[in-house]
């Protein structure tokens, strides 16, 4: 996690800096937690190619987290490794969507599809950020994300149109995950001001594009049924019981060897 943007960028006001720090942290937290869940398939995926694919995807997501946290560091945030490995569940701001246990293959693929499409569309919009360092990160990450979208869109299609068993599992995964996915479009405190300044994408516009894209794929192409999403969702400070054990495992090596420099 050492790559930093070369341009320090436009001047931000203090409230803008604080809001952007929070936004970068929530973006990174989603990437880190989902990468860990995907990493749990390593050695366990249904076929070798998919074992490799999910590890690749996880590696990309961690790369994106590294970009966000390195930028956060230039704005006064802590060292990226510190942020990843030394915060507990009360301080993580990931969505509940990404912390749910990996479930079966359909659950993992549907979640990844919902997440990747949201991430790709958000990044695509963020390439037009007036804050140059963020626009640079988005331009980099969106090129990687398009491969995730291609991959997971195909898997969801294959599972939904496969056998009655795979269709049943895919629909069950979508029914469970859909309400959680809405949480990806909750703004952080101060986000409206950053959006007004053109620093962050308009989250409502991204949400509308996402709903359109995933509806076309999941409903029109794959024949799945979208459940109703709840009108309100708890915030990113509310977690399920699944986050604490995930962090305990993910952070165990770093915490046992706090002085380690070479892994």
């Amino acid at each position: 996690m050492t790559t930093t943007p070369s341009i320090s960028g436009t001047e931000l006001t203090h409230p803008q800096t604080q809001a952007l720090l929070l936004k970068l942290t929530v973006l990174a937290d989603d990437e880190i937690i989902l990468a860990h869940r995907n990493g749990e398939w390593t050695g366990h995926a249904p076929i070798l190619e998919e074992d490799i694919a999910l590890a690749n995807i996880a590696q990309d997501e961690l790369g994106h987290a590294g970009l966000y946290l390195s930028l956060a560091q230039t704005l006064g945030g802590s060292d990226p490794d510190r942020v990843a490995f030394w915060r507990g569940p009360d301080d993580y701001r990931n969505t509940r969507l990404v912390e749910l246990p990996k479930g079966d293959w359909a659950f993992t693929m549907v979640r990844q599809f919902l997440y990747d499409t949201a991430e790709a569309l958000w990044l695509e919009a963020a390439t037009r950020s007036t804050y140059a360092p963020l626009a640079e990160i988005a331009a980099k990450a969106v090129r990687e994300e398009k491969f995730h979208v291609q991959h997971t869109a195909l898997w969801v299609e294959r599972l939904a149109l496969g056998t009655p068993e795979s269709e049943r599992r895919t629909q069950a995964a979508l029914t469970e995950l859909w309400p959680y996915a809405a949480q990806l479009f909750q703004p952080v405190e101060g986000e409206a001001e950053l959006t007004a300044a053109g620093i962050l994408p308009d989250l409502n516009a991204v949400h509308a594009r996402w709903t359109d894209l995933v509806t076309r794929h999941l409903v029109d192409k794959c024949g799945l049924t979208l459940p109703d999403a709840p009108t309100t969702q708890p915030g990113r400070d509310t977690h399920t019981e699944h986050l604490a054990p995930l962090l305990e495992e993910m952070q165990s090596v770093a915490r046992q060897h706090p002085d380690a420099e070479v892994w």
């Binding site: 790559t3 930093t4 943007p5 070369s6 341009i7 970009l67 990160i137 331009a139 980099k140 090129r143």
Partner: peptide, 10 residues
């Protein structure tokens, strides 16, 4: 040795 993200590698 400096790193840059712009323009993104292609």
């Amino acid at each position: 040795v400096r790193s840059t993200l712009t323009p993104p590698w292609t």
